[in-house]
Write a protein that binds this DNA or RNA. Structure first.
Length: 432
RNA sequence: GCACGGGUGGCAGAGCGGUCAAUUGCAAUGGACUGUAAAUCCAUCGACCUAUGGUCUACGAAGGUUCAAAUCCUUCCCCGUGCA
């Protein structure tokens, strides 16, 4: 279970700074949550994520872990934290996004963010079935495995069940995320379906909690470890302080809002999901790329104030700054790590592509203003060399920088809310 | 010295009379990436131009055959292998 305290607010009434308390520690909010899809933050160890990046939590994916190594294995390992050796708070996404990325978006150059000028074209039903790896119906989603092509069925109930097995602190309801190219009518259907699925998720979640209470209350859901084994494990650990896990630790379920770029649908979804018995919310779905923050504002105005709100899959600097002032508490996004692995690094003015010829003999740090491990110790020329040489360390150093940059941008936003200097912070950090 | 086999764009390596400014891979140059299908993908990659088209220079060098040659012939220069 989690709890949420609000410490300070922006004058606009939407943005706030707070703390999410979890069984694995606190998340001061707003916070950026790096994505560890397959229970690993690509190219980083958990120690790097904690010490070099300064991340407070991480987010893994249900679909991926279900396929590999299997949620039963994660459970057998003692849950996600123990399996991946991450002691802090965790989330799992429900697999709802994969209905989109492996469905309508599969094999196409479609992102969940659309330019305003893009014409919506409904392409959900009349595609050839072989062109995608996910098919959605009223009851759930049929996936093909990206690993071996085998067929798997996800329903709201099975997603929640798998997430309980994986054992993150916060888990998401199974929602339907669809392409921004879809028609208004299709978006409306996704909102209605997501609400029905949310009810089913919540119901099943409560049943699972009750079941757990019945026979594991003394040990905790993921505490089935003898005291002798625990002592032995702790004795081996010399670099990492153990976080005390509450004995009653169980996942907390967050509901997800859909509605695309349409104000009425966003508000409808937020009212429906917001009225349900979730302990927090995720804002998902597709957006008008030019104005994510406006849609976020529509939603946050409808959501209960005292529960945390997570903006799913958004993480460009400007989107973070505008998201925070419109009421978002936490974000996750693959952009910092994916872009880093592809040679892109954030600087205050925007983004550099380290593969550009001009960096081969640029011996300055990636960002002279940055205090991260990479910037304190390496030059642009060196990291550029690593990228050209296809050395693995390139991904590590660039990921450390990008994650540090983004995580600390949000941390500074938090401090600015507390200090009452958000406007200055925004003016200083918004990229033109 | 003789006998084979070769010399193609930055590299490797296709092509073996017209549809070849030349397949492909690598490298290079630029771009994209927002709940990870992603250490991925896309574009460009001889020069010049009144550019969904045109002109010029190019497949070791020089000649030749042909309406037409990277592709056939001759000589020369290199390289590899074998025999002396």
């Amino acid at each position: 279970m989690i709890s949420f305290d609000i410490k300070a607010r922006l004058p606009n009434g939407r943005g706030r700074a707070g703390v999410i308390h979890t069984s694995h520690g606190d998340i001061p909010t707003p916070a950026f949550i790096p994505v560890a899809t397959k229970a690993t933050l690509k190219s980083l160890t958990p120690e790097m994520l904690r010490d070099a990046v300064g991340a407070d939590a991480t987010l893994a994916n249900t679909y991926h872990l279900y396929l590999q190594p299997g949620s039963d294995i994660v459970k057998k390992a003692g849950g996600l934290h123990r399996f991946m050796n991450w002691q802090g708070p965790t989330y799992t996404d429900s697999g709802g996004f994969q209905a989109f990325s492996l469905g309508a978006a599969f094999g196409k150059n479609v992102s969940k963010l659309a330019q305003v000028k893009d014409e919506p074209t409904s392409d959900d039903t009349n595609d050839e079935p072989t062109a995608r790896l996910a098919h959605v119906d009223d009851e759930g989603v049929t996936f093909k495995s990206i690993i071996d092509g085998s067929t798997h069925r996800f329903t709201p109930e099975s997603s929640v069940e798998i997430q309980h097995a994986i054992g993150a602190d916060m888990i998401f309801a199974f929602d339907e995320c669809i392409s921004p190219q879809e028609s208004y009518e299709r978006q409306k259907l996704a909102v209605e379906r997501t609400t029905r699925w949310a009810e089913r998720c919540l119901k099943h979640h409560k049943e699972l909690l009750k079941e757990k209470e019945g026979h594991t209350s003394a040990e905790g859901a993921f505490g089935a470890e003898t005291s002798a084994r625990r002592s032995a494990r702790l004795a081996k650990r010399d670099t990492y302080p153990e976080v005390e896990v509450r004995p009653s630790f169980s996942p907390t379920l967050l509901g997800i809002i859909q509605g695309g770029r349409h104000q009425d649908l966003r508000k409808q979804s937020a009212r429906e999901i917001g009225a349900m018995d979730f302990e927090g919310f995720g804002i998902g779905g597709s957006f008008d790329k030019a104005d994510i923050a406006t849609a976020v504002g529509w939603v946050c105005d409808e959501l209960p104030e005292n529960k945390p709100r997570h903006l799913l899959g958004i993480g460009e600097p400007n989107d973070l700054i505008l998201g925070i002032e419109n009421g978002i508490d936490t974000f996750d996004c693959v952009a910092p790590t994916r872009i880093a692995r592809n040679g892109g690094v954030y600087v205050k003015q925007g983004r550099l592509n380290l593969l550009n010829a001009k960096f081969v003999d640029d011996f300055t740090p990636i960002d002279p203003l940055c205090g991260c491990y990479t910037c304190k110790n390496y030059s642009r020329a060196y990291v550029a060399h690593l990228f050209r040489a296809k050395e693995m360390l390139a991904a590590t150093l660039a990921s450390i920088h990008n994650l540090y940059f983004i995580v600390h941008l949000v941390k500074r936003a938090r401090q600015a809310i507390i200090d009452g200097t958000y406007e200055e912070f925004k003016k200083e950090n918004l990229v033109k």
